[in-house]
């Protein structure tokens, strides 16, 4: 991407400070996940029965849990799980959604049937769908991704289907067809390139909702194994101590809210950037 391209993408964030904050929070999360062993002050698994349920102080900034483990360290390590689940769900939604959506738009006969099936899936609340799938598949990180991803695959497919239908009717697609292009050419040269921007927006929202979904599954004990640090697991383990050690719920809870909120801010900013009505304003044209 050229320098101009980068400035163009950054403009919506610069024009809107709160979106910039969202971007920074996300960046912090990625850094936390990548450098957890160096950033975390303690071993997140180390048990210290002596210092159980310590309130936040200068030694343990976020306090300690019922096993004396450092909450800050566990919260930092949890960013890894959060990113893994988020990226996994987004990938799952795109890998299933793009082929189904694009195919359905280009081949309306079969597409109609496919989209009705997607509609049926859409009728289930996403958490209920996730719970049902976990019951069938069994709890694990990979299955959490599939279970949550199934819920967002439907909305993603719908969006792709709608966009692809519109793109198929574009004059430049007609021009290409009139010169003899086949389906493969249309998809690779005309449809996919024009899907990238809207999908980026969709991905940021799916990523945000995946955080909430994963936290819910973990909280119910149906997500990642309990010893793996994740914000949902931390909430689940500490819920019995809500009166004695409220910080145990406060910090992971805050992390979930902050992450989901930041992603939504970024998604909003991206959408504004990509909405043609605002595009000219941002690129200084028109």
């Amino acid at each position: 991407m050229s320098r101009d391209g980068i400035t163009m993408w950054l403009t919506p964030f610069l024009a809107r400070p709160i979106a910039l904050i969202g971007l920074c929070v996300l960046l912090a999360m990625v850094i936390a996940a990548a450098f957890a062993p160096w950033l975390a002050p303690y071993d997140p698994y180390a048990i210290h029965p002596v210092s159980r349920l310590m309130p936040p102080d200068a030694v343990h900034w976020f306090g300690t849990d019922q096993f004396g483990r450092d909450t800050l360290s566990r919260a930092i390590y949890s960013a890894r799980m959060a990113l893994l689940i988020g990226a996994g769900v987004v990938l799952f939604a795109l890998i299933t959604g793009i082929p189904i959506g694009v195919f359905s738009a280009l081949f309306p006969r079969l597409g109609h049937v496919l989209m009705r099936m997607v509609d049926v899936l859409m009728a289930f609340p996403s958490l209920l769908l996730a719970l049902g799938l976990i019951v069938i598949l069994g709890p694990s990180v990979a299955n959490s991704i599939i279970a949550i991803g199934a819920g967002y695959m439907t909305t993603t497919t719908r969006i792709i289907y709608g966009l692809a239908l519109r793109l198929r009717a574009e004059t430049y697609v007609e021009a290409s067809r009139s010169m003899g292009s086949g389906t493969g050419w249309l998809v690779v040269k005309h449809i996919l390139p024009n899907l990238i921007s809207p999908l980026l927006v969709q991905a940021s929202f799916v990523f945000a909702f995946a955080q909430l979904g994963a936290a819910s599954l973990d909280f119910l004990g149906l997500g990642a194994p309990p010893d793996i640090p994740s914000w949902g697991n931390m909430l689940a383990e500490s819920r019995t101590f809500i009166t004695r050690a409220p910080w145990l719920l406060f910090f992971p809870g805050m992390m979930i809210v902050l992450t989901a909120f930041s992603l939504n801010l970024v998604g909003d900013a991206l959408r504004d950037r990509l909405d043609p009505r605002f595009r000219d304003v941002f690129s200084g044209e028109g």
Partner: peptide, 21 residues
């Protein structure tokens, strides 16, 4: 405005018939 793909360079659009065939 509608007959050129906004994501393809002018050169790619102009050469499209040649590329396809």
């Amino acid at each position: 405005y509608a007959s050129l793909n906004p994501r393809r360079s002018i050169g790619d659009s102009v050469a499209e018939a040649g590329d396809i065939n």
